[in-house]
Amino acid sequence: MEMVDPDSLYTGILIIGTDGTIDQLNQAAADFLGRSPASLYRTPLEYADPALARWSQRLAHGHRSFQAPEASLSTTGQSADAVFTRIDGGVLIELHPVAERLRQRQLANRADQQQAIHMLSRRLAHELRNPLAGVRAAAQLIGGQTSEPALKRHAEMIQREVDRITGLIERFAGDQNTELAAINLHRILEETGELVVTERHGRLDLVRDFDPSIPPLMADGDRLHQMVLNLVRNAVQAEAGTIRLVTRIEHDSPMVDRPARHAVRIEVLDDGQGVPETLRDRLFLPMVSGRDQGSGFGLAIVQQIARAHGGLVEYLPRSPGSAFIIRLPLIPAEESDHV
């Protein structure tokens, strides 16, 4: 039988001697522990990884073998299915990778969240269509019965805003398809940022860090505008004084469904109060808000728009503030006919 090279295995293998030091290990085990094999050889296990040392102490209480599913390693924070077995002269520890399982679980959780968003948004759209239609009809009636220019202008503005809100609701509910057209991403970011600066009467520092190599994209410009607007307003409501908009091109970028060979990365960085840790796991679900007056729909809409473009939005904490990372598959306008 052909012998298998231990260093070719994805499973980490460690043999711990009776004195508690590492007698043997392969490359995968060293990778799990975040060090080189040479630096770990003859190192006491409790120094190499205290969590593994604590788990292995169970063998001293009569266990011949046991498993610690998805054990978190002290040194790197990685998770592994750790199997501990008593052998002649020591302990055998096997570290089985679980990264793919965890990734699939995260994908499933995100899919469940998206399904919940979709069901709730369709119900919300159904409830709001009739009242909005009534508001629009009333504004139209007022505009038709008055000769005063200011009242006519205000009535027309109400009708336009109702139409815009209705369109957003229908898109969020999935009743309208994403309408792709050639757009200038940086122009959308500029207009969105300037709108919020105007709303704040100039009391906001907007920093632009754009990659000029990003070409015109095929996307729904109105929805991208709404997505970024929600994120920037969210930062303002978190009392940010500075917001930084960053664009870059990424390769083999992570997405929900599968990695994108080329993607556009948009970062909205702020120095505000950040997101409470208790909300971070549920941040993109409807009805979740860290503010008393928040609707809880702003970030759910952000994620919905990104997903409609085949992309993904992620949150990362900063000190101080927040980072929202948008990744969208890069579809240059000139190549759209071939996609």
Score class of each variant (00 low, 15 high):
residue 2 E to W: 12
residue 3 M to D: 02
residue 9 L to D: 07
residue 14 L to R: 02
residue 18 T to D: 12
residue 20 G to C: 05
residue 21 T to M: 02
residue 27 Q to G: 03
residue 29 A to I: 02
residue 31 D to K: 14
residue 32 F to K: 09
residue 41 Y to K: 13
residue 41 Y to I: 06
residue 42 R to C: 04
residue 44 P to S: 05
residue 47 Y to K: 08
residue 52 L to Y: 08
residue 58 R to E: 10
residue 59 L to S: 09
residue 71 A to L: 13
residue 76 T to E: 14
residue 77 G to S: 13
residue 78 Q to D: 04
residue 83 V to Q: 04
residue 85 T to M: 12
residue 88 D to P: 01
residue 90 G to M: 00
residue 93 I to G: 03
residue 98 V to T: 14
residue 98 V to W: 07
residue 103 R to W: 07
residue 104 Q to Y: 11
residue 107 L to Y: 00
residue 116 A to P: 00
residue 125 A to V: 02
residue 126 H to T: 10
residue 128 L to H: 05
residue 133 A to N: 08
residue 136 R to W: 02
residue 139 A to F: 06
residue 142 I to R: 09
residue 146 T to S: 14
residue 146 T to Y: 06
residue 148 E to F: 12
residue 150 A to F: 05
residue 151 L to Q: 09
residue 154 H to M: 10
residue 158 I to H: 01
residue 159 Q to G: 15
residue 162 V to M: 07
residue 168 L to M: 12
residue 174 G to N: 03
residue 180 L to P: 00
residue 189 L to C: 10
residue 190 E to G: 03
residue 191 E to Q: 15
residue 195 L to E: 09
residue 197 V to R: 13
residue 198 T to C: 11
residue 199 E to C: 12
residue 201 H to A: 15
residue 202 G to Q: 06
residue 202 G to K: 06
residue 202 G to C: 07
residue 204 L to Q: 14
residue 205 D to N: 15
residue 205 D to I: 13
residue 219 A to E: 01
residue 222 D to C: 00
residue 226 Q to R: 11
residue 233 R to H: 14
residue 235 A to E: 02
residue 237 Q to W: 01
residue 241 G to L: 05
residue 244 R to A: 06
residue 246 V to M: 03
residue 247 T to Y: 03
residue 247 T to E: 05
residue 251 H to P: 00
residue 254 P to D: 03
residue 256 V to N: 03
residue 268 V to T: 04
residue 275 V to S: 06
residue 280 R to S: 14
residue 285 L to N: 03
residue 288 V to N: 07
residue 290 G to H: 04
residue 291 R to E: 13
residue 291 R to D: 11
residue 293 Q to G: 08
residue 294 G to W: 07
residue 294 G to Y: 02
residue 296 G to E: 08
residue 298 G to W: 04
residue 301 I to D: 02
residue 310 G to S: 01
residue 312 L to D: 03
residue 317 P to K: 04
residue 318 R to V: 07
residue 318 R to F: 10
residue 326 I to D: 00
residue 328 L to R: 00
residue 329 P to K: 07
residue 331 I to F: 00
residue 335 E to I: 08
residue 336 S to D: 08
residue 339 V to P: 01
